[in-house]
């Protein structure tokens, strides 16, 4: 592996981990800034219950601003979702202009409200498991997401959420 490819892989890893921090902290605009103009985001799963591939959410970059801007108008829990991510693979194209990465992640929920706050506040619960399948456009030191497919292995969401995975 060339030093240049090694450096690009390192930039991709930093981008994925930065996205994890932004999403954990609900810094939605910082997350959007990491995405290129043609970025596509989706949450998908395979359901053995109905033996089908299912889509739970699809957003373009253009749709992400109003999606996040409307959050304060909606009721939701105040129990943050956080990720633990491990990057499994990063593959850089031969010309060094694009890359793909696979990242395993789990999400936990810090219970504050949502069920009985006096009982459960302070507890953490496993929320879902999944893998991110990411694609990037690389221009020098700039690494931008062009696609994120969050493939989850969870179909039981109980109350659900308004926050992306």
């Amino acid at each position: 592996m060339s030093a240049e490819e090694q450096h690009t892989k390192s930039l991709v890893r930093e981008t994925i981990y930065a996205a994890t921090v932004y999403l954990d902290d609900q810094r939605w605009n910082d997350w959007i800034d990491q995405c290129d103009e043609d970025f596509k985001y989706s949450v998908v799963t395979y359901s053995p219950e109905v033996r089908k591939d299912l889509s739970y959410l699809i957003l373009s970059r253009k749709e992400m601003h109003p999606y996040f801007d409307l959050l304060p108008k909606h009721n939701s829990d105040h129990s943050p979702l956080r990720r633990h991510a491990s990057i499994y693979t990063v593959d850089v194209s031969a010309d060094g202009k694009t890359a793909e990465a696979v990242t395993s992640f789990i999400m936990t929920q810090e219970m504050i409200d949502g069920i009985s706050a006096p009982l459960y506040a302070g507890e953490n619960r496993l929320y879902l498991t999944g893998k991110y399948y990411d694609k990037f456009r690389i221009n020098g030191e700039s690494v931008k997401f062009t696609e994120r497919v969050a493939r989850v292995y969870t179909r039981r969401f109980d109350k659900g959420t308004h926050w992306v995975f």
Partner: peptide, 14 residues
């Protein structure tokens, strides 16, 4: 599961 209304309805009954 990430929809606008269902989450709110489920918060209500929970």
């Amino acid at each position: 599961p990430l929809g606008r209304n269902l989450h709110e309805d489920l918060i209500g009954v929970a």
